[in-house]
Simulated assay, not measured.
Amino acid sequence: TGCGKEVVVNLIQELSNRGTGPFVKLNCGAIPETLIDYEFFGHEKGAFTDAKIQKKGVFERASGGTLFLDEIGELSLAAQVRLLRVLQQKIVTRIGGMHSIPVDFRLVAATHRDLKQMAEEGRFRNDLLYRLNLFPLRIPPLRERQEDLFPLTDFFLNRLRSKYGISQPLSLSQKSVEQMQKYKWPGNVRELENTLERSVLTSSDYQNIQIVFEGETGWSGPVVQAASPEQIKLESFEMMQKHYFEAVLKATKGKISGADGAAALTDMHPNTLRSKLEKLGVTFKAVKPEL
């Protein structure tokens, strides 16, 4: 669940005898049904109007290594048939091609759905389920493995230090530690990662970071009095933006332009960013910002 399955799949690839081979990932839930054949099988140059070059599909690219099909429960029945045929025959033919191409890959599939129930309801093929269910692994949700919570937290905080160029160590407040232990983490590891990043970006003290769960602003100042819920939401959003850009400026030591500047980090034009900072009233007092 969340990033946990990716860690497991990466370990399977790295520690296996296919570790030096290709490692191809495809999120089945992100591919429209009309494009699934192009992703699965690829195409020859000129196979259709926009086919300017030859493209290999995921089965062919993964040959000799591992293919990871994430969210396999999202595949339509028609796509399941195509996948099953490749697993049985171990050959593919590119769209617009005339020749069968042998493929040899390890398939690892993941899903958050109950495939057995889906098969009983006729939404997942039994024969494909049997083939996939050779060696099932269940990754417990984060709420069931509390012992992993803070090792993962340390890992993500170190990665955030590198991402935002923060020189000092990042530490959570004691209150935040207690809140995290009580929280159920419905979004699992991915929610943990996003929550920590949000908390770091809205923090003014890297040694005493306050955890900010989804829907919270991270602002601990005076409550804004407003005439309506809409105004409260607007004020909170603007305050969150302000804290975000202050954190970005802090991470880039006030630098706006350049490859390591705040504009590049936020994917904005430097002049657009300067205008945004001026509108929000953002200043950076720790260093002299290049505004």
Score class of each variant (00 low, 15 high):
residue 198 R to P: 08
residue 284 F to G: 09
residue 115 L to M: 07
residue 278 E to D: 12
residue 279 K to V: 04
residue 279 K to S: 08
residue 160 L to N: 06
residue 85 R to P: 00
residue 91 I to W: 07
residue 234 L to R: 11
residue 206 Y to S: 14
residue 23 F to C: 05
residue 171 S to H: 12
residue 244 Y to F: 08
residue 160 L to S: 08
residue 50 D to R: 13
residue 9 V to Q: 04
residue 62 A to E: 00
residue 144 E to F: 07
residue 226 A to R: 11
residue 60 E to W: 09
residue 57 G to Y: 07
residue 60 E to P: 01
residue 56 K to V: 11
residue 170 L to V: 02
residue 39 E to P: 14
residue 282 V to G: 03
residue 228 S to K: 12
residue 175 K to A: 15
residue 184 K to N: 14
residue 275 S to E: 13
residue 289 P to G: 04
residue 129 L to D: 02
residue 238 E to Q: 13
residue 147 E to F: 00
residue 116 K to I: 10
residue 138 R to F: 11
residue 218 G to K: 00
residue 3 C to A: 13
residue 278 E to R: 10
residue 259 A to Y: 15
residue 213 F to Q: 04
residue 72 I to E: 02
residue 217 T to V: 09
residue 168 Q to V: 14
residue 252 T to I: 12
residue 208 N to H: 09
residue 275 S to M: 12
residue 28 C to K: 02
residue 9 V to A: 02
residue 150 F to T: 06
residue 49 T to Y: 12
residue 130 Y to W: 08
residue 250 K to L: 14
residue 127 D to E: 07
residue 171 S to L: 13
residue 4 G to L: 08
residue 223 V to M: 13
residue 62 A to G: 02
residue 257 S to A: 12
residue 279 K to A: 10
residue 10 N to E: 15
residue 223 V to F: 12
residue 170 L to D: 02
residue 114 D to A: 00
residue 176 S to G: 04
residue 255 K to Q: 15
residue 43 H to Q: 13
residue 183 Y to A: 09
residue 276 K to H: 06
residue 11 L to D: 11
residue 15 L to P: 06
residue 28 C to F: 00
residue 252 T to S: 13
residue 40 F to H: 09
residue 86 V to A: 01
residue 169 P to Y: 07
residue 112 H to S: 08
residue 55 K to C: 09
residue 232 I to K: 04
residue 130 Y to L: 03
residue 194 N to A: 12
residue 224 V to Y: 15
residue 3 C to K: 11
residue 25 K to Q: 07
residue 101 I to E: 06
residue 215 G to N: 11
residue 239 M to A: 14
residue 188 N to G: 07
residue 46 G to I: 08
